[in-house]
Nucleic acid binder design. Structure first.
Length: 272
DNA sequence: GCCACTGTTAGCAT
DNA sequence: CATGCTAACAGTGG
C-alpha cells in the first residue's frame, strides 16, 4: 500500500520522533522479517543520526549501520507508548533508551522487512543498486532517456522500480490519467511532449498526495495513527463504472500484468 | 465455503 | 538483456 508519498510522510514523522534516540533492543516475533548478517547487538546502543528514503525504502542511518525498512503492501510503523495495546500483526518492536515509547512494525502479509547492514556496504545492496531515479525529482530529460528504448507498455514501466522509483498502482494510474496517456501505450512510442506532461503529472499527483497525508484505503496509517485523505481525491483508481471527472465517460478497468489498471477510454485514447 | 481480488518485489522462465 | 508470470502471505468481499 505505501507508495512514495506514504513512505515520505512516515520518514518525516519518524524524524521528529527518532533522531537522536538510541535503540537498545529489538523484540522479534517473526524471524523472517528481521534480516541481519552480523550479530544483532552490534547494531544497537548507537544513536539514530538521520532518516531518509529511496523510492519506497526507508533508511535509518545509525552509524556505522544502516537500518533498511520496506513496508511492501501491508507493513505499518507505529510510534506508541509501551502500554498502548499492540497493533494486530506486530512482528517487531524496537525499544529505546530513556523513553517508554516504542517503534512497532506490523505487517499482516509479512512481505515487509527490517534489514540491518553496515553503512559501508549500503551501495552494494542489490535492491538499492538497481533502483531507478526517484519519481519525485526525476527530470523529463532523464525520464525520456529511460523510456526511449523500452518496448514494454508504460503502465508496467511506471510500476517497475528499476525504471522509476516510488510509484505503485494507485499513483501510476492517476498520473496516466492526468497526462491523458493510455496505460497500454508502448513506452518508446511516447513523444517528448507527452513525456514532459507525464513527468509533470507524476510530480503533481505525488505532491498533492503528500500534502493530504497520503492515501489510506486499507492499512496505511502514519506512525502516530493519523490517516491520509488522498483517497477522497482519486480520479480513476478503483473507479471502474463511475464517470470520468473530466469528460463524463465511464472509467474502465483493465488487467495489466496481473494488476488492475483504471483509465478513461475517452481522455486516454489508445494511439499506438 | 470458494474464488477472485489486494497497494510489492524477487526470482525464474521464456 | 527485456519482459512476463508466479510465489511469498493473509485478509476482504462477492
Amino acid at each position: 500500500m505505501p507508495e512514495l508519498p506514504e513512505v515520505e510522510i512516515i520518514v518525516r514523522k519518524l524524524k521528529t520522533f527518532l533522531i537522536g534516540k538510541v535503540p537498545i533492543r529489538i523484540i522479534c516475533n517473526k524471524a523472517k522479517l528481521l534480516k541481519t548478517s552480523q550479530c544483532l547487538s552490534m547494531a544497537l546502543d548507537r544513536p539514530i543520526y538521520d532518516i531518509s528514503r529511496k523510492g519506497k525504502l526507508i533508511i535509518l542511518s545509525v552509524p556505522p549501520y544502516a537500518w533498511l525498512i520496506h513496508l511492501k503492501m501491508t507493513g505499518q510503523l507505529w510510534w506508541q507508548h509501551k502500554d498502548t495495546p499492540l497493533p494486530s500483526y506486530t512482528h517487531l518492536t524496537i525499544l529505546f533508551k530513556d523513553t517508554e515509547y516504542q517503534l512497532r512494525f506490523a505487517d499482516s502479509r509479512q512481505f515487509g522487512y527490517l534489514q540491518i547492514v553496515p553503512e559501508k556496504v549500503l551501495s552494494q545492496v542489490p535492491f538499492l543498486q538497481k533502483l531507478g531515479p526517484d519519481a519525485l525529482t526525476i527530470t523529463p530529460l532523464t525520464f525520456e532517456k529511460r523510456l526511449q528504448n523500452r518496448h514494454a507498455i508504460i503502465k508496467s514501466l511506471l510500476l517497475n522500480q528499476q525504471c522509476l522509483a516510488g510509484l505503485g498502482n494507485i499513483y501510476s494510474d492517476e498520473a496516466l490519467w492526468l497526462a491523458k496517456i493510455h496505460p497500454l501505450t508502448p513506452a518508446n512510442t511516447i513523444n517528448q511532449t507527452q513525456i514532459k506532461k507525464l513527468t509533470t503529472a507524476i510530480h503533481k499527483v505525488l505532491k498533492c498526495a503528500l500534502k493530504l497525508g497520503g492515501t489510506s484505503i486499507k492499512s496505511y496509517v502514519h506512525p502516530d495513527g493519523q490517516k491520509g485523505l488522498y483517497q477522497n481525491r482519486l480520479f480513476v483508481y478503483g473507479k471502474a463504472g463511475l464517470p470520468c471527472q473530466r469528460c463524463g465517460s465511464l472509467i474502465k478497468r483493465l488487467k495489466i500484468g496481473g494488476r488492475s489498471s483504471y483509465f478513461c477510454p475517452v481522455c486516454q485514447p489508445r494511439i499506438n
